[in-house]
Write a protein that binds this DNA or RNA. Structure first.
Lengths: 245, 245
DNA sequence: CTTGACGAGTGTACGGCGTACGCCTACCGT
DNA sequence: ACGGTAGGCGTACGCCGTACACTCGTCAAG
């Protein structure tokens, strides 16, 4: 699988080629087997050559995430909020299904990448357009949790036979400009963040009550379970108004 | 924080002491700073000494998870299923809140540890006792997803300023005995697994339709959102029949 | 044509990691 | 008294990410 080592007849490296190769390598051999050295070898290049195109491994991982998340292709979206949200979430799931490492990497990263922000912005936008208040949208996003990203935790199946950022900030003016740009690019995210954290130091969030969000989502699910139980649920394809994606 | 190095006046190591120290270290400095070497230093001992008490780092992590999950203390549980489930889940959340690394480690492990199985068995038992069918229980567990473990994904908050086991099996007889023991210890897990995977090679699962489970949970949440939206939701503390834990 | 800057790829080296293997020694039952 | 055993020690190996200084090909300015 490794390329020829002759430096003459080898395509020049580029950030894009590096990221592609990294994604392919992670797909093929698992994320834990992805090392800078192994990746360089795969590209027929010395390890340090990679550092001309990515700052370090963290940035490589971010780039890989963005590549995958950027590949989310939402279907034709109807005007109703439910179809729009459902479609985007299922599209995200589809995009991530062939890259099992992606969800884990996304979670391990400290902050969202641009493509992730764009996706979230689109989902939030779908709620708002559908008449959801900022508040309800906020809670809904929390309740959806990791489902926004197109995957669910699967701790559950798996045979039990086997036992088991950014450092110091830039100058204030520059920071403000960056914020304005952010707000322009991700208007819905910004609106939502601003509503929950208007009196907070941080640029965007940390202003919401985790415990409340947790219980909100939990009770929403428990309510749903109770309804299904009462109506003697057996095995209809969708709990209520499910519609095809 | 490191102990004295004099081997004479130092308490002897033990698996328990190692696990405790590991948990404390992970709590204090983060899971990524937990290395065998650092942990040994913390215990005033040479790295290889640890390997007399844990087989390797993987087993250390499993032990840490079990220590934390084993510390889940469910409150007084009423007879109603909802209170029981809710109580156990919130207790799990509470136990894991002071160990932010735990959820990540749980996910990264390949299979559930005994304490995790016990917790899931209890939750499943609460559903079944409350009159849930095996099927509905199964879907409910999937829908709860990572919430069973007492945490939610929080990709959402976090300032965007920062850019972004066991190997080859033992002989069949021994395996069967192990299975019986498993079934005895975790009856509800076993029942549920058996119902979804009766014609499957693997000991316990892999028999359920991921896509169905995903959409089931998604639609359950979307139904809930729609109801709240229609009734012009503003900010009542709980969507419906929320009760105190 | 020379030259000097520049960017891509190279080579070497450092500190940290998990852990295999063998030794040393204090304790124990006989 | 003595051999076994269990717990802790020391050394060593092969990985890892990456800092730093280099070479060399390209190309614009003189």
């Amino acid at each position: 699988m490794a390329q020829q080592t002759d430096p003459a007849r080898r395509a020049p490296l580029s950030r894009d080629r590096v990221l592609r190769a990294a994604v392919a390598l992670a797909d093929g051999t698992g994320i834990e087997a992805l090392s800078m050295r192994r990746l360089a070898q795969e590209l027929g290049v010395v390890p340090m050559a990679l550092y001309k195109h990515v700052a370090n491994k963290e940035e490589l991982l971010d780039g890989m995430v963005d590549a995958v998340v950027g590949g989310i292709r939402p279907p034709d979206l109807g005007p109703d909020w439910r179809g729009a949200v459902r479609g985007r979430i299922l599209a995200a799931r589809e995009a991530l299904r062939s890259h099992p490492w992606a969800s884990q990497v996304i979670r391990s990263r400290s902050g969202p990448t641009p493509a992730l922000l764009a996706h979230m912005d689109a989902v939030i936008g779908a709620f708002r357009t559908g008449g959801f208040s900022v508040d309800l949208t906020h809670h809904a996003m929390h309740a959806l949790g990791s489902r926004i990203l197109g995957f669910t935790q699967e701790v559950f199946d798996a045979p039990p036979g086997a036992a088991p950022g950014a450092a110091a900030g830039p100058p204030a003016a520059e920071q403000a400009a960056a914020f304005r740009q952010l707000a322009e690019r991700y208007p819905h995210v910004t609106e939502l963040a601003g509503a929950t954290a208007h009196d907070d130091d941080s640029v965007v969030g940390r202003g919401c009550d985790d415990q409340f969000e947790f219980e909100f989502a939990l009770d929403l699910l428990l309510d749903g379970f109770e309804r299904l139980r009462q109506q003697g649920w057996t095995s209809s394809p969708s709990p209520a108004g499910g519609r095809a994606g």
